[in-house]
Simulated assay, not measured.
Amino acid sequence: MTHDQYDRQDPQEQFPAPDEQTGGQQSAPGRTGRMPDTPDHGEDSYRGTGRLTGKRAVITGGDSGIGRAVAIAFAREGADVLITYLPEEKDDAEETARLVRAAGRTVVTVPGDIREEEHCAEIVRRAVDELGGLDILVNNAAHQMAQEGGITDITTEQFDRVLKTNLYALFWLCRAAVPHLAPGSTIINTASIQAYQPSPQLLDYATTKAGIVNFTKGLAQNLADRGIRVNCVAPGPVWTPLIPATMPEEAVESFGQDVPLGRAGQPAELAPAYVFFASQESSYVTGEVLGVTGGKPLA
């Protein structure tokens, strides 16, 4: 039996436990097709109800993981989407685009590196030109690389890449998008439980995620008088290609076991949070962080 997101299920048993998942070690940024246990993005389960009909969205990192799940959900809710991806993730991006088209919506795919300021501006320009405007910006793309030695193993090159991908791009994209966002539009950022409970191996990544939480709260106040809402989703452990591509094998094998529900989340379980923030249902919510963590407290 195929369940959708509205069917009652036991959250402990809904998806595989850590001892039942195999990531398949690979190089960054990671490909979905190389994972023996492919993440669930809602391909067979997400049921839309028209909550985003006529909206136009940009989703960074929309090729795989949470980004793909959000693209599927948005499309099935009636939105047209632009997804960004690194050139080496083309195969994943094409599969996401296929799923959006299958939902009857328009999709624009934009390869490139969001560490480049001009590329961020180009993403917004293309959304406005090719989708006819912009209503939703989802800042989802991120980079991490675990370092067992902590700060002494983090190179300046790595630190620069993490900050440029996770924070600089967020700023550039928001700055470019705001002039095109009408009242009622939304910006949704992706933070992490790492913003509140940082792992020593992810010091640089956790630092950027804490910055995203602060940026979200500040920008929400900045844009309130324009009628633009800004919110943030903070995932816990989520099963995506980023995990086997950036973490040691032993960590992948136990990934997700430390949360109360006893397993990693699936991208499909994150998508409804983004739909909520993108929809009119959250009209009185701005500057908020929604944790989707399997029961592990954010604070």
Rank of each mutant, 00 (worst) to 15 (best):
T155V: 09
A71I: 10
A103L: 03
F159R: 03
T165I: 14
V138R: 07
R98D: 10
A69F: 11
L163S: 03
Q144E: 07
C120R: 12
G67T: 10
I72R: 09
T152N: 01
D153V: 05
C120M: 14
T155E: 08
A97W: 10
T156W: 14
I83Y: 12
D129C: 06
T96V: 05
D80L: 08
T156K: 11
D113T: 08
L137G: 02
M145P: 07
D129A: 15
V128N: 13
G112I: 13
E95D: 03
Y85C: 04
E77V: 02
D92M: 03
V128K: 14
I154A: 01
R126G: 02
P87K: 07
D129Y: 05
K164W: 10
D135R: 04
D135Y: 06
D113E: 11
T60W: 05
R101V: 01
I154L: 02
R101L: 04
D135T: 01
A73E: 13
Q158K: 14
I136G: 06
D160V: 14
E130R: 03
E95Q: 09
A97E: 12
L131M: 14
A103C: 08
D160I: 12
A121T: 13
R68Q: 12
A73P: 07
G62Y: 00
A142W: 07
L134I: 14
R125V: 06
A93H: 04
V128G: 13
V138K: 00
A121G: 15
L137C: 02
D129N: 15
A127W: 12
G133F: 04
A75L: 04
E77G: 11
F159N: 14
N139F: 14
I59N: 02
A127Q: 14
E148T: 00
I66V: 12
V100K: 09
R98C: 00
T165Y: 03
T165C: 01
V81A: 01
G112A: 02
